[in-house]
Computed example of a mutant assay.
Amino acid sequence: MPPIQIALVGVGKIVRDQHLPAIAKNGDYRLIAAASRHGTVDGVDNFKSIEAMLEAVPAIDAVSLCMPPQYRYEAARTALEAGKHVFLEKPPGATLSEVADLESLAASKGLSLFASWHSRYAPAVEAAKSFLAATTIRDVKIVWKEDVRQWHPNQEWIWAAGGLGIFDPGINALSIVTHILPRPLFITAAALEFPENRDAPIAATIAFTDADKLAVSAEFDWRQTGKQSWDIVAQTDAGEMVLSEGGAKLSIDGKIAHEEPEQEYPMLYKRFAEIIRAKTSDVDLAPLRHVADAFMLGRRKFVEAFHD
């Protein structure tokens, strides 16, 4: 089959670090254009807006939207109305309602919409899911702590309302947990810490359970220095399971059970090509729903101001 003619919208750090290399190595795609207010991509036509790009390059089959979530809905709707398949960086949108509207529009036009949860494609995630499916889980603890100055330097949008704050990385943990646990979770309590000069939280603690009263807790914090922590620990009848390094490594009772090189974004683009060829969509809103519930139920505490 001919390659999918794809375009990128929102050329920032994540595009340069992940999207461009993944597309370049995948023969299912040919990158033909990019649109961004500030960035450009070498070797393709560049535009300042998605509207200008779609008008000038009608051969585009699909667009990958990588701008902040607060601005993604209008761009996604523009692309779908123009007959293009749409890849949504995580989180897929600023609200649940707007993503549901995009899913309905894509279905009405026979187009593919992909809510891309990259951490679900970490190397050891499927192995962890298989391990948990074969045993009884006693409790689960999520510890997702990193240094915001290292991973999001000078990114003001992430602190604005709708930017999610600590839930920008925390939603990665939620995307894994909602995939590997056998039953749906719901939040019973949450506490969110907001810097006094910001509109998004810098830390959060959350308690979850499921229909069988499983205890699941999460600690998210953006103030971690030194070694970063991206771990999911489950106590089970088959031993202690530790899914570490953001899903890259699985250990059972301290022994490595699964470890491979990270290939998250190449796997995302493989999946996007699959759903385009199959004429379907892949839009799971469970991780974003948990974030919305945390904001709905969470107690709010103001902490000292944060400055980059």
Rank of each mutant, 00 (worst) to 15 (best):
M1Y: 09
P3M: 14
I6K: 10
A7G: 05
Q18R: 11
Q18M: 04
I23W: 09
D28E: 13
Y29N: 06
L31H: 01
G43V: 15
N46Y: 15
A62M: 15
S64D: 09
M67L: 01
P68D: 01
A79P: 02
E81T: 05
A82T: 01
K84N: 09
F87Q: 07
E89R: 00
P91M: 09
P92V: 12
G93H: 11
G93Y: 11
L96E: 08
E98H: 15
V99L: 10
A100E: 14
L105N: 07
A106T: 11
A124P: 15
T136I: 09
R138D: 00
K141N: 05
I142Y: 03
E146R: 10
R149Y: 03
H152K: 07
P153L: 04
W157G: 08
I158M: 04
G162Y: 09
G170D: 12
S175D: 03
L181I: 04
P182H: 08
F186W: 06
A190C: 07
A190S: 10
A191R: 14
E196Y: 03
E196S: 13
N197G: 10
A200H: 10
F208W: 07
D212E: 00
K213T: 03
E219P: 02
E219Y: 08
W222A: 12
T225K: 15
V233H: 13
D237I: 07
E240L: 06
L243G: 07
E245F: 01
A248Q: 05
K249H: 08
H258P: 00
E262T: 06
E264D: 11
I275W: 06
R277N: 11
V283K: 06
L285V: 03
A286R: 13
A286E: 10
R289K: 13
R289A: 15
H290F: 15
V291N: 14
K301R: 10
